[in-house]
Nucleic acid binder design. Sequence first.
DNA 1: TACTGGACTCGAACAGTGTGCGAGGACCCT
DNA 2: AGGGTCCTCGCACACTGTTCGAGTCCAGTA
Lengths: 245, 245
Amino acid sequence: MPDFSDSVWTRPARARTGQPTLSREQIVRAAIELLDAEGAAGLSMRRLGARLGSGATSLYWHVATKDDLLELAVDEVMGEVYVPEAGDAPWRIGVSVMAGGMRAMLLRHPWVIGMLGVRPTIGPNVMRMSNRSVGLFSAAGFTGPTLSHVHSLITAHVIGSATTEAAVSAAVIRSGQSAAELRKSLEPFMEKAIGEYPEYAKWREESGVLEMEPDKVWDQSFAFGLERILDGLELWLAGDKGETE
Amino acid sequence: MPDFSDSVWTRPARARTGQPTLSREQIVRAAIELLDAEGAAGLSMRRLGARLGSGATSLYWHVATKDDLLELAVDEVMGEVYVPEAGDAPWRIGVSVMAGGMRAMLLRHPWVIGMLGVRPTIGPNVMRMSNRSVGLFSAAGFTGPTLSHVHSLITAHVIGSATTEAAVSAAVIRSGQSAAELRKSLEPFMEKAIGEYPEYAKWREESGVLEMEPDKVWDQSFAFGLERILDGLELWLAGDKGETE
DNA sequence: TACTGGACTCGAACAGTGTGCGAGGACCCT
DNA sequence: AGGGTCCTCGCACACTGTTCGAGTCCAGTA
């Protein structure tokens, strides 16, 4: 006797509202959730489909390719970054707000970092950010190619700091220990290396960096760097522009 | 009638010299070659095995996991970076040499960039670099946590600049066109965007950046940023260390 | 010389990946 | 009622990293 418990007849009619059940925005949002929760390796089209209650290949009607989806996701989270309007505050403050916001975003969505080097992002949100940035820097007094260099300098600092910070924090998470515990369990390894790397070892011991709270150190490092950069830029604006060439 | 053309008997004795045919260094070297030629997506254990004339799974005797292999590869190329000895030159020069060398390495091996954010590198070559760097910065007059911040600042600049540069250059390569051609074919897209991003468009038009040679622009941008950073650091060394807090 | 044990290689297999294709269902318009 | 468009999805393909166990070779010992 055939089993009708799962046939077309016993199964309830598909819950269709007449509207498509999937949308590109919905897919992108779900992808970001998955990426946040499990990292780049945790996102597969099949798992994403399952999370949305639909077949994996259905996604391909809304999105040409997984790479495209990632590009959309990157641009989407870029939209979370607030860039102040030019003139709302002194330019140093404006730039700091932008840089801090972008750093926070990258640490919220660390999977973005690994994608920045793969293809340039030119989505609408990135464009909006760029547009605002130009305003910010041009109000500060930068023009022409230099303006672009300044923009690159600031974003490079954000991306670069976030890269190493994210790498370490990923290692901490993977280890299942706290940062302090992880450092302790690496201690013997370091101990052995001391002989070979004397300068490094000496600094490590004397700097007092071992007793500091890791998160605070990252914040300080980022802020310190940003201040030095802004100082350097202000100096350049102040006049001696040909000093170093 | 059985086919003996490929049996143990007809097959020539394995060309064994008595030495193992595979070695970890050889594998890492081949992996780097493959990564350089085809990027991160082009490296698979099977292809790597084929390139070495051996079975894919043979690699697993020398290397625990693909991730381990990548870590080895990253550390290996890090070894290509020359870090001057402290005292061989004024510290600004020393730091510039190191930063420039690291940038060049990252552009030679752009696949490294995408891996830096995934896990921290603590291989011997990276340690050697760190050791040298400490010497460099400490000779410049930096101490304690600040020394670490300065180190982070410089490497962040290198990594950050290389990230966006590599992204663009990857896009150019993928497009199969020259940078200028690619820009031209993106022109209509940009044209349409001008209305929405007025500041950006205005800068784009007036800056003269469109007529410049792309490679030169990258170099200039990197050098400009580095000089600003070094200026900022020198200023800090000069004294007014509490100025901005 | 025979035998053992370690160093090393490798084919088969498993679970999982991105994606093309074609069949089909649901809806709207004529 | 018939067609056309939008949308979903199962199947299949070629490929991935990795495990397992069998096998091959060589050095050392008895």
